[in-house]
Amino acid sequence: MKFKISLAQINPKLGSIEENLAKHIEFTNRAIAQDSKVVVFPELSITGYLLRDLSFDVAFPYNSQFFEPLKTLSKEIDIILGFVEKGEDKIIYNSSMYLSKGEVKSVYRKMFPPTHGMFEELRFFGRGKDFIKIETDYGNATVIICRDFFHPTLLSLAYANNIDFVFAISNMPLRGLKGDTPQIQTTVETASSTYTNFFSFFVVYVNRVGFEDGLGFYGGSFIQSPLGKKIVQAPLFEETLVSETVDTEDIYKKRTVFPLIREEDFSNLLRNLKNIVEEK
């Protein structure tokens, strides 16, 4: 199946949810005009990243009226976005939402909110516990958020669950300006090349741009096929919408020439993992 994905590499305004919502509507309409099936926004695209105490002021339950305009638009295109979720368990989360056919189809809570060095997410957000599988018209998808992408354990769940598209939405601050690409970009793209190659799914990576309190987010969003090819890549530092067609046949091709998934024995993996965890 061939279809188009749009990467909305935006620069959200910190804490300005109404303006950010307007930007989501604008970019979604542009993606619809380009005939895309899915439009993907970055992590915390509704709120901005460095919220700290603002986190509490910009949190919504996933079923809030606030998302109505986007729910309506999702009758025409699937939308993936990032927001601060006011959980029914009275905890707030760094979450993503998958909207489709006029409904909130799925909500994912970031499993690995980083809390070290310049990161302090667990100071404000709860920790998500559940991997999600989203069944769509174009195959099985999952959404993960920023630091999650550096945990191969989580990506292994996508592999075990026969996921076709991993949507990794991100607010990755730039660090390391030696060489041709920012060092953090190299780290991300090395991980993506490994995952697409060995887990044979598509990686759709959407990073934001702009500055907050001196942290600069580099952009460089991309789609990588299981065949290794970068199907599209957005420029660094620029707010932009890029769209490109993917072909799900790439997954079959890859799994034909490199049938790792056929060799897997997940029950055996589970048995061994259980032994390791319980011995600890």
Partner: peptide, 10 residues
């Protein structure tokens, strides 16, 4: 513990 960001009015 008044932890608002610097760029609050962005």
């Amino acid at each position: 513990d008044f932890l608002y960001p610097h760029d609050l009015f962005k």
